[in-house]
Each structure stands twice: as C-alpha cells, then as structure tokens.
C-alpha cells in the first residue's frame, strides 16, 4: 500500500524525482564496487563516462541479488516452519538461515532462471568421509 502511494506520487513529478535520484547516486555507495561494475561493463562493450549510470547498474544488480536472496530466505523460513517442533529445536542451532541450493533454485525460478544442480556435490575429496579421519 505504501509502495503504491509512493509510486503514484512520484509519477506526478517524475522529472525532479528522477534527477534527484540520480544526484543521490553520487553519494550512495553500492555494495558492488564501481571498479567491478566497470570491469564487467567494459567487457561487454558498454561505454559510459558517467559514474551515476555505472552506479545505477550496480544498484540494479544489487537489487536483483537482494530480491533473489530475500525470496530464498522466505523459502528457507517456510520450510523450517513446517518441520515439527521437537525436531526443529534439535536442528535450530546449526541449520537456521543457511543459503542452500534448494531454496536458491526455487527463488531463481521465480526470476526466470532455471538452476539444475547435482543431487550430490562433493566439494573436496574428503567430503563425506568420516569426520574423525579428516585432517583438519
């Protein structure tokens, strides 16, 4: 509701709002650093001297990642809420709020990305071995 109100307000005077937003990007520091964005933009043939537009791309990417991660978090919470309570207490300590492939692929599907991952994925040769025999 609040969001809708904001958008209709901005629709009336979009030009000052837009220029104000672009000006605010000069002070805003996106999480994705400018150098990285410039690197990828230059690799794709994008050429633009304006820092604000580079930051706009950075913010857009940040928003996308944040949305995907937020969706995955909701998936994670919904999954954990469905577990029976006594089991949950046992698992609560180490398993809460971990970003997993399972949640991520569900979240990405909503954004049009189909992630197919292997059922079992070994990161290192020692994965799956008895913990006692591992050298760590």
């Amino acid at each position: 509701m609040n969001h809708n109100q904001q958008s209709t307000e901005a629709r009336h005077d979009d030009d000052p709002a837009l220029s104000e937003f672009l000006a605010s990007l000069m002070d805003y520091t996106p999480t994705i650093p400018d150098e990285l964005v410039e690197h990828y933009l230059a690799k794709s043939g994008f050429q633009c001297p304006d820092v604000r537009l580079i930051r706009l791309v950075a913010v857009a990417t940040q928003k996308f990642v944040a949305e995907v991660a937020g969706d995955a978090l909701q998936q994670c919470k919904a999954r954990q809420a469905s577990i029976v309570k006594d089991k949950r207490d046992k698992q609560q300590k180490d398993k809460r709020l971990i970003l997993t492939m399972e949640d991520l692929s569900k979240a990405l599907r909503e954004h049009g990305v189909n992630v197919k991952h292997q059922e079992y994925f070994a990161d290192s040769p020692s994965t799956g071995m008895d913990p006692a025999s591992r050298e760590e």
Partner: peptide, 24 residues
Amino acid sequence: SVGYRKTHLSALETLTDIATKYLR
C-alpha cells in the same frame, strides 16, 4: 544484509554467477 548468516559454497557461487550474468 538480507538476513542470512551462513551459506553453502555451491549456492553462493551459483548466486554469484547469476549476478555476474545479470550485470553483463
């Protein structure tokens, strides 16, 4: 910043890959 505290490496790398592809 979204609220996660831990991640699987494969999930993080997948998300990183997607973010890179989005940017490009």
